[in-house]
Structures are given as structure tokens and as C-alpha cells.
Amino acid sequence: MLSFANAKINLGLHVVGKRSDGYHDLETIFYPVKIYDVVEINPIQTGVTTFSSEGISIPGDDINLCEKAYRIVKQDFDIPAVAINLIKRIPIGAGMGGGSADAASVLKMLNETFNLQVTNAQLEVYARLLGADCPFFIENKPVYATGIGTDFESINLDLNAYYIVVINPGIHVSTVEAYRGVEARKSEFDLRTIVKLPVQEWKFYLKNDFEDSIFEQYPRIMELKDALYLSGALYASMSGFWILCIWYI
């Protein structure tokens, strides 16, 4: 079975509190975009589950999230081994959820391939064991995300009438560095209300709290955002550590 695992973007991001466990409470909008990895699983009658990948190189020697997804399901169901093949196209470390999308695709494909009849709610429980934004890719619909990015509220948002472009500024900013420069505070505007405004008004209200400190350290990213507005973008902002922009079709 073959699946196209899409990426996601963040529309706005507010850091609203520091938790006792060291994590931060966030508010953001997750929106699926048409940038894909390709994930395939094939049952193996004998042997053990295997994983292979091509395309963008995946760093590290840890077990891939796709394999972890299989192991989680295997704990509850007597399913055979599978060969997992991945064509990696979603950039790694960009905040676009590529690894989470791949793992969620494996969960859904195992459910369908072996007729496990697991509900989406249960698939989301499995997904929470794999990563903060992994549950989003089960339903794969726009949500208002809170907590550490795992508490979802469905929202009505359709951007199919627009071009969405995601740009790599060629600058790496670590998560630790990004959080060091931001101060947790309650947001002034409700993201759910902002995204109901016309897209051309988002630039006045829809903010990413990481931008101020990162732009100060890396003015080239701010220059890129400004250039996008000069080129006619309706909205431009950081999403993860990349820049997204929206144009009319």
C-alpha cells in the first residue's frame, strides 16, 4: 500500500506559558499543505519489519518513527512484519512535520491493510506516543492547536483559492536558540478569530512570536519576508524556521 504523507505549516504561533516539565504552552494553527513524502508498506510473511529510505538523507542511527509506529500497533495486534519504504521529500528540521506525517501514514495504512478497525480516536492515541504534532496527521484537517501542540480544536479554514509557497532561507536556527529569545506571554489576539479575517489583513494580526528575536539575530530572514511583501504576497511569516507566503491564484 502506498500513501502520500503531506507536510503542515503553522499559521501564527504564540508562546503563552512555560510549563513545569520544561516545555512551553503554545497557540497556533496547523494547516496541511501539498508537499509530500511517499510511504509504502508491504507485508512480509517471514522475517522482521524492515525500513529503507531514499531522497533527503535522514540523520542519526535511531529507529525511524515509521518503525516505531509499526511497533506500537504490533503491541496490540498480531500483524505480520512489513517492509516500509520511504521517499523523503519534506525538509527535515523545518517544523513542517514530515517525520510525524510519515508515522501517521504508517498507522493508517496498517489499520487499512490488516482491517484492524481502529478508530481515528485510537489512532490519535497511538500517534501521541510518537510526537507532539503526529496526531494532527490522522484527521489531517486544519486545527487550532494548544498545549505543547497536541490539543486540537477543529476550525473551518480553506486556502485552496490561494498559492501557498514555503521558502528555505538557508539559515539554521536550533529550537533551543529560538526559545531562548522569546518571552512567554498571553496572546493579544485569538488566532481562531484572526484566520476568519480576509487573508490580506492577516499581516496586521497573525504573528509568530519567534520572529522578533530571530530577525534581530538573522536580519536576512526579515529581508526575505519584506521582499515577499514587495513582490505582492498577501501574507508572509515564519512557519517553523522557514518562511511561508500566500498569494492569490
Rank of each mutant, 00 (worst) to 15 (best):
T28M: 11
T28E: 10
T28G: 06
I29K: 13
I29M: 11
F30A: 08
F30G: 09
Y31W: 11
V33A: 03
K34L: 12
Y36C: 01
Y36R: 00
Y36T: 03
V38N: 01
E40L: 11
I41G: 04
N42E: 14
I44P: 04
I44K: 12
Q45N: 05
T46H: 14
G47A: 07
V48C: 04
T50R: 10
F51A: 11
S53E: 14
E54A: 08
G55C: 04
I58V: 14
I58S: 00
D62Y: 09
N64H: 15
N64I: 05
L65M: 11
E67A: 07
E67P: 01
K68M: 15
A69C: 13
Y70H: 07
Y70T: 08
R71T: 03
R71N: 11
I72A: 14
K74Y: 12
D76A: 09
D78G: 01
D78S: 13
P80F: 01
A81I: 10
L86E: 11
I87L: 12
K88Y: 10
K88A: 11
I90A: 02
I90H: 02
P91A: 05
P91D: 13
P91Y: 09
I92Y: 04
I92D: 13
G93P: 09
A94R: 06
M96S: 01
G97L: 08
G99W: 01
S100M: 09
S100F: 10
D102R: 00
D102H: 01
A103T: 08
S105Y: 07
V106W: 02
L107K: 04
K108G: 08
K108N: 06
M109P: 07
L110K: 02
N111G: 00
E112G: 00
E112W: 06
F114D: 10
L116H: 05
T119A: 03
N120K: 14
E124C: 10
V125W: 08
Y126M: 05
Y126P: 11
L130R: 00
G131M: 04
C134K: 03
C134G: 04
P135Y: 10
F136E: 04
F137Y: 06
F137C: 00
F137Q: 00
I138C: 01
